[in-house]
Computed example of a mutant assay.
Amino acid sequence: MGFFTGSGRGRAPHILWDPFTGAFAQFFPATSRAKALFDAVGGTRTNRAGKVVIQIESLFFPHCRVNGKVFARLVDTPCEGWDDLHAWISSRGVPDVWPMGRLTSLSRNACPADKWPT
C-alpha cells in the first residue's frame, strides 16, 4: 500500500482491497477522481464519467498462492470484507447493475467505450 502513498500516488485507485483479510485502504474520497484508469486522448473520461466513479483494485493476481492454496480467480478467494465494501459503494448511490454481465476477464479493455457510461 505504500506504493500508492509514495511514488505511485499518481496511479492510485479509490480503494485497494485485500480479499483474503478483508482489509482495505481508501486513497481518495468517492467524490474525487481516482487515477488507476488511463484516459486516452479523445477517449472516454473513465475517471470522471459519473457523479460517483469508484475504482477498486484488489490485492490479487490469477493463480496466486495464499497459505498454501492456489486461487485461479478473484471470485474463488474468500472475498473477505466485500459485504462491507459493497455496502459502502451502495450507500454512495452506485446502482448494483452489470451492463455487460459480471466481469469475467482481467483485461484492461473489458468495457467498450459505448458501454462505459452505463
Rank of each mutant, 00 (worst) to 15 (best):
R92Q: 14
K51V: 07
P29A: 12
C111H: 06
S7I: 13
L37I: 08
P78W: 03
S105A: 09
A34C: 15
W17Y: 14
W82A: 00
L37M: 14
R48T: 15
W116Y: 12
F28A: 04
I89F: 09
A49D: 11
F27M: 01
V53H: 10
P117M: 04
F24M: 05
F3C: 09
G43N: 10
C64F: 05
V53N: 13
D96K: 11
A23H: 08
L106T: 05
Q55V: 11
V75L: 09
G6D: 15
R108N: 14
C64P: 01
C79A: 12
F24V: 03
H63V: 10
A12V: 02
A40M: 03
F60G: 02
F61W: 14
C111A: 11
D76M: 07
A40L: 05
T104E: 15
G10C: 07
P13R: 07
S7P: 06
A87L: 06
V52P: 03
D39N: 15
T104C: 10
R65Y: 02
G68K: 02
A30K: 06
F20Q: 02
P62M: 06
A36C: 10
D84W: 09
A36D: 02
P19G: 03
C111D: 06
G93K: 13
P29W: 06
G42Q: 05
G10M: 09
A87E: 03
R102V: 12
A113L: 07
S58M: 03
V53R: 07
A110C: 09
G68C: 05
A36Q: 02
G68D: 04
P19I: 00
V52N: 05
A12Y: 01
I56L: 10
G93M: 12
I89Y: 07
V94W: 04
N109W: 04
N109Y: 04
T118P: 01
G2C: 09
P13V: 07
N47E: 13
V75K: 12
R108G: 15
W88D: 03
G81N: 01
I89Q: 04
A110N: 05
A12T: 01
A25E: 01
P13I: 08
G2K: 13
N67Q: 15
L85S: 02
G50A: 15
V97W: 07
V70K: 08
Q26W: 08
T44P: 06
T104M: 11
I54G: 05
F20K: 02
S91Q: 11
V41W: 13
T31D: 14
S7E: 12
F27G: 00
P19Y: 05
R33E: 10
P99V: 05
T5R: 10
V94S: 00
P117W: 14
P117V: 10
P29N: 12
W82L: 01
N47R: 14
D96S: 13
F61P: 00
